[in-house]
Nucleic acid binder design. Sequence first.
RNA 1: GUCUCGUUAGCUCAGCUGGUAGAGCACGUCACUUUUAAUGAUGUGGCCGAUGGUUCGAAUCCAUCACGGGACACCA
Length: 520
Amino acid sequence: MSKQIIKGKLLAFENKFIQQRIEKAELLRAEGINPYANNSQRNTTIAKFLNVNSDVAEKENQRDEKRHYIVSGRIKLFRIMGKASFIKIEDESGMLQVYVARDNLPEGFYNDTFKKNIETGDIVEINGFPFVTGKGELSLHAEGVKLLTKAIAPLPEKFHGITDKETRYRKRYLDLIMNAEVRKTFKIRSKVISLTRHFFEDKGFLEVETPMMHPIAGGANAKPFVTHHNALGIDRFLRIAPELYLKRLIVGGFEAVFEINRNFRNEGMDATHNPEFTSIEFYWAYKTYKDLIKITKEYFEYLFDHLDLPTILPYGDLEVDFSEFKEIPLIESLSVIGGVPEDIVNDKEKILAYLRANKLEAKSEMTLGQLQGELFDGFVEEKLINPTFITEYPVDISPLARRSDVNPEITERFELFIAGREIANAFSELNDPVDQYERFKAQVESKESGDDEAHEMDEDFVEALSYGMAPTAGQGIGLDRLVMLLTNEHSIRDVLLFPAMKPLHNEHANDKNEENKTGE
RNA sequence: GUCUCGUUAGCUCAGCUGGUAGAGCACGUCACUUUUAAUGAUGUGGCCGAUGGUUCGAAUCCAUCACGGGACACCA
């Protein structure tokens, strides 16, 4: 737990290091140097500098004084060696060593300004020429040093950096300054989002934005956040899924739509759950879940190709082999993968007994399909390491999926599991408005008997379906978890720039009243 | 929500069965013009997460609270 946050000394500028640095900024001002200058002259990035000058080692004296560059960056290391110094500066593209010698700078600047008032954490601009040091490191030989931005807060320790997870999540900017691999993770995340967008655009999907504030929180089984519209005097729910709006668009005649954005679920937080999370949902008219299996495989190939990932990815202690995506019906997976005796998987009483014998939750009022779901969660899910499509889900745990024409008890649905986790959920959509109405009614009854995550009746959605929705297949993919998988991260907080955190102080004295309101 | 571990200097961490705090880095001063976590000398720096309790005496023991990590439960 980081004490500094609680004490708040840095913010109050009471900290002695901050005082010292503010004084330095004043001294610089007195010399006519603006400690917050904005006239940057940078003409190349560090990565480009290193790349373009990789030939300097071959040159006479291992230097090229005819080349001139201006680079900028934050000082990460400062090594003063008398009349010369080595500093390391970092910009977004990389890290560069700069050699600063007294005699290459204006009279007095090195001793009175550079050594005294410029330090680790400051953002500077260096102009100079490339050379290679005795130890073989391509560096920049400074002929001018300009301060761009004075940092009045000291950087964390140069070797260990910042490791306290709480500080890293609360002050992500510090984490990003200090930890290059964190920057890399978030670059990959950004790329995954971008690739996802391009993949579906290339397939002819239309990107749309549907409401985040819903009158009825539908499209998933989850508790919603409640917010309030003052002018209308009504409560709204932050969406738990965009599904029902996207399907209305299919009714409206768009044949392929997708939305990449946040969902909000008012549930516990842990390594795989953040109150707001990012998903892609896409809906595709005149297709079935079989087509979704195909496009999902293509999507993963596309990602792996563009991210340049190996077919076998490490994930913690696991090795996940993406070369083959298996397919198996849920009922079959129970015995084949889960080791559940084959003769019990269609018998309510036997499943109940089996679950209880294995100390798993089992309520007598559960339906057969719900019990099969329990079996799956308890015995199969964690064993699905390599990508596996689990298909043919029971209808009573799939309120929005289309029934199978062959067996009305199951739906045309799959979930994709990788590394023991659900990554995608997809099905041929239910487009029979009467069936949909009945299923909503069943959910409402379930809700009345205590399941507060059950669906509510959405009459407007049923009405939309009653105008006819073309046969459609739809899918949702949890992008945070996908990024976790691809970056070998094991906490969702490590793939969210600003994960949800509890407030540090009792800032909201009226929270108790708020609780009462939302509980109504 | 439950269990469990943690919170000591700006950062990373020691501090044993109670005797009012230590290192490294950083920072200040000095030396040093090719270093690589530069080096050497020297110095400053702490409400030991918060509140109570036990005790002559608490960073240390106990309780409660706050925040965080991990595991489990629910979910994506």
